[in-house]
Simulated assay, not measured.
Amino acid sequence: MAAAVELSGVTKDFGHMKALRGVTLSFGRGEKTSLLGPNGAGKSTLLRIVAAQMVPSSGSVRVLGYDAQRQREDVKRRIGVVGHRSFLYDELTVLENLRFYGSFHGSTQEDYDRVIALTGLDRWRDVKAGVLSYGLRKRGDISRALLGDPDLLLLDEFFSGLDVETSSSLAQHLKRLDDKTIIVSSHSPEHVQSFCTRTVYLRGGMVERDVGPT
């Protein structure tokens, strides 16, 4: 399987604190991987480096064939990111939010209909984001991240704060994205085991275990 993401000897220091300590990993195209570990394990830092939002202290990172340090804008155009905080505007409906973000990608109404259908938001397309439940808002963020048809989705602590039923529903929607490479960080394996085929355990900024296909 061709690699979508390759990290080699990646470190990240914040002053005297070492967030990542020589991480070497490869993620195959189309692979669904969960990053598990306690708070401070380095999960969010690793995802931000892959997303070209943060520069590593040392090591190399290639994302979809691009150097994540030297070709950051190329990387950002090819990926979708959902972080801790929602980027939907409360006063806009789901569809209006998608049209706003889609304007940066040259998206069409067909694109909006496609991502809404993929995330099961048809009933809520004309509802303002500010009144959506937490789970529905997460679906809206996935829809936003899918605009531009990215090859790679990075989901940081995506299931945090969700109940079991909502987590299960969102996992099923993610499972339908069989052509996407997905890396999702989480504290709890039960949230991701239904759609991820590989699990990487981080602890203290290092890879503790790597289980599943590569």
Rank of each mutant, 00 (worst) to 15 (best):
D13H: 15
E110M: 01
P189C: 06
V115H: 15
F195C: 06
I142Y: 13
E31P: 12
V61I: 08
L7V: 00
G212A: 06
Q53C: 00
E73S: 08
G135P: 09
E157L: 02
R123V: 00
S188Q: 10
V23P: 04
L88F: 14
V55M: 06
L121P: 05
D151S: 12
V207Y: 13
T45N: 06
E208I: 00
F159E: 07
L136W: 15
L177Y: 14
R144K: 15
T197N: 14
M1E: 10
E208L: 03
V211R: 11
T33F: 02
T119I: 06
V82P: 10
D210V: 05
G120S: 10
T181H: 05
V81S: 02
E96I: 01
S194M: 09
D111M: 07
R70C: 00
L7K: 02
N97H: 12
V131E: 14
I116W: 09
E208F: 07
H173T: 08
L147F: 13
L136S: 15
E31W: 01
G212N: 04
H105N: 08
F87G: 11
L92S: 14
G120M: 01
F158I: 08
A4W: 12
V184G: 01
P189D: 11
R85H: 13
L174G: 08
H105V: 00
R139E: 10
V50A: 01
K180R: 15
Y201I: 04
L121F: 04
K43R: 01
Q69C: 08
G140Q: 03
A3P: 10
L162W: 08
A41V: 02
L162Q: 03
D156P: 13
A117Y: 09
R144Q: 09
S168V: 01
V81E: 13
R144H: 09
R198V: 05
S133T: 13
L121V: 04
Y134G: 11
F14S: 09
G9F: 08
H191K: 03
Q71N: 04
V207A: 07
S143E: 13
R78P: 06
R48M: 12
Y89F: 15
H191C: 02
Y201Q: 12
H16Y: 02
D149R: 12
F158E: 12
V5Y: 10
K32S: 09
S60Q: 09
I183N: 03
T119Q: 05
G204V: 04
L118M: 14
Y112P: 03
L153W: 14
K175T: 01
Q172V: 05
S143R: 10
V23R: 11
T33C: 07
R29W: 03
D90E: 10
L147S: 12
A51H: 05
L46H: 04
E91V: 03
L170W: 14
R62A: 03
T33H: 05
G204W: 14
D113F: 00
L121R: 14
F195T: 10
G102R: 05
V50I: 15
G15R: 00
S168F: 10
T181K: 03
T93C: 09
L95M: 13
K175G: 06
G212K: 01
L88Y: 14
P213R: 00
K18N: 05
S44H: 04
P150G: 06
G80Q: 10
S186R: 02
Y201K: 05
R48L: 02
L174C: 07
L20E: 00
W124I: 03
Y66F: 13
R209H: 12
E6L: 07
Q71S: 02
R48G: 08
L88G: 11
R137C: 11
L170E: 13
T33P: 02
